[in-house]
Design a protein around this nucleic acid. Structure first.
Lengths: 110, 110
DNA sequence: CATTTATATCTAGTATTCTTGATATATGGA
DNA sequence: TCCATATATCAAGAATACTAGATATAAATG
C-alpha cells in the first residue's frame, strides 16, 4: 500500500461521521447499505453524507454499486486489510512477543 | 474504547510524520527509541517532533519512560489493539466470510 | 550552583478541513 | 419528454490543525 493512501484512510477515519459510517457498513456486512439509508441512520444531511462517502471511497475504505437510481455502499474489507497490514509491517520482525497480542485480538472465531 | 479516543488516534495517524513515528516504533519493538533519535531518524525539528509525540501519546498510541534526561518512546501495542478492535467490532456477527480475510492478514506467524 | 543536554510548551501565522445552501447529474416512471 | 427521486458537486464562511521560533522545564555534570 502507498503511504499516501494510508494517510488518506486515517484522515477519513478521524472524522466522527465517517468513522460511524465505516463501522455501520462493517456491521452491515455483505448486504451493504444505500447511501440514503446511511444518511438517515446517522442523521446527517444528504450532501454532507455524500461528501463523506466520497472521502471514504477515495481512501479505499468503501466500495459502491449503483442500484437503480440509488447507490449501495459496502465496507471495503480488502482495503481495510491492506491498511492495517501497512501499519503493522515488520511488527513481528522487531518484536514478536509484543506483536502477537495485538494480532490475536483481531482473530475472531466466527 | 471510547469513540473520542478512537477519533484522536485516527487523527494522530493521518499526519505523515506521526504515521512514520508509529511505524518506526512498531519496528523498533520493545527497545523503543529516544525522542531525540526519532527526530533525527525522521529529520524533523525537535519541537515539532515533541508536539507530534505528545499527540500520539494523548491518542494512546505510544508510551514513554524517562531515562535520565532523555525520554524513551514505545509503540503502545495495547492501545493499538483496542483501537483496531473498536473498528472491527461486530464484524463477525454481520459477515464472517468478509471479516475473516481481514483478520487473517494480521496474524503473523512469529 | 552554573552549565549543558534533552525534551516540552507557548504563540502566531498559515494552511487545511468541515459543513451547508444551492445546484447539477443520473435514473426511473408516467 | 416531463417530473420525481437519489446522489453528487460547487462555493464560501467557520473551525481546526500544522509548523517553527522563542522559551521553559528537567536532569546530569563539573
Amino acid at each position: 500500500m502507498d503511504k499516501r493512501i494510508a494517510l488518506e484512510a486515517f484522515a477519513a477515519l478521524s472524522q466522527e461521521t465517517r468513522l460511524d459510517v465505516l463501522r455501520l457498513l462493517i456491521r452491515a456486512g455483505g448486504e451493504g447499505m444505500l447511501a440514503g439509508d446511511i444518511a438517515v441512520a446517522l442523521d446527517v444531511r444528504q450532501n454532507t453524507m455524500s461528501t463523506n462517502l466520497a472521502v471514504l471511497h477515495r481512501a479505499g475504505l468503501v466500495r459502491n454499486e449503483r442500484q437503480g437510481r440509488a447507490v449501495r455502499y459496502f465496507a471495503d474489507m480488502a482495503g481495510l486489510r491492506s491498511l492495517l497490514s501497512f501499519l503493522m509491517e515488520d511488527c513481528c520482525g522487531g518484536a514478536p512477543d509484543l506483536c502477537r497480542p495485538v494480532l490475536d485480538a483481531l482473530v475472531c472465531d466466527c
